[in-house]
């Protein structure tokens, strides 16, 4: 795996992501500064990590989405390259137009920082092949704006095309209002674009990959990506 992690001013989960990728793929990812106009040659995964790019000024992810490197990411995604955006990364991907919809202020207005359960909706994608369909995983969230919204037609299309890959749920996998931590439409925690090569998700799988973290449920996402890339190579 030749992963490239984008780095914007104010991003703070970039090193967590680098550590997780190194641990699971065995390869050190490249850190790519936002002012770059190209990605390293041979990049097979672009990661937009979490944090608070540009202090969340204007709207979360709005300024980072217009950074020079994002043009390179758009070209890369248009050619089918894999892109993973986590937390602020998801917000940046929505603001950049690579994913539909928007992440609004949490319905309860509070910053939410604790473990949540996610139901993996399908296992036949590069981003979920490390899990079984219907499997429940536990990963942390840390966000104030994670309330996914889109117009009715977009939501219908996302559901119809099976593009919701991760959904907030209870410990036993029930998707209900009580487990929908931020009020997201359809309890959406993670979606892919129409081509299936760009995933955005609010929770942090990179923070549940080692025993010392108390849980390793996040490993499956990265292990699945490694497997997918090995098979493709």
């Amino acid at each position: 795996m030749k992963a490239a992690i984008l780095v914007f001013p104010g991003i703070n989960r970039d090193r967590d992501m680098a550590r997780a990728l190194k641990l699971i793929s065995g390869h050190e990812p490249a850190m790519v500064w936002h002012a770059e106009t190209s990605l390293p040659v041979g990049t097979d995964l672009v990661v937009v990590p979490g944090g608070f790019s540009y202090g969340d000024y204007l709207r979360c992810g709005a300024i980072a989405a217009r950074a020079p490197v994002m043009d390179a990411v758009r070209d890369y995604a248009a050619k089918g390259g894999l892109v993973l955006g986590v937390c602020n990364g998801f917000q940046i991907l929505c603001e950049s137009g690579l994913l539909p919809g928007v992440l609004m202020r949490n319905a309860g207005l509070k910053f939410i920082c604790h473990d949540v359960h996610l139901r993996v909706e399908r296992s036949d994608t590069p981003f979920t092949r490390g899990y079984n369909a219907g499997q429940v995983i536990r990963v942390p969230v840390a966000h104030g704006e994670g309330n996914y919204e889109a117009d009715e037609e977009t939501i219908k299309r996302l559901e119809g095309e099976g593009r919701v890959l991760y959904r907030y749920c209870s410990a036993d996998g029930v998707v209900d209002e009580a487990s929908n931590i931020n009020g997201a439409a359809q309890s959406i925690a993670g979606i892919v674009n129409d081509r299936g090569n760009v995933l955005g998700m609010m929770p942090h799988p990179e923070n549940h990959v080692e025993d010392i973290m108390g849980c390793t449920d996040g490993r499956g996402l990265f292990a699945g990506l490694v497997q997918h890339l090995e098979k493709a190579a």
């Binding site: 217009r66 539909p100 928007v102 609004m104």
Partner: peptide, 9 residues
């Protein structure tokens, strides 16, 4: 269009 507003919402 480019920055100040997110015309989705």
């Amino acid at each position: 269009d480019k920055l100040l507003a997110n015309t989705v919402i």
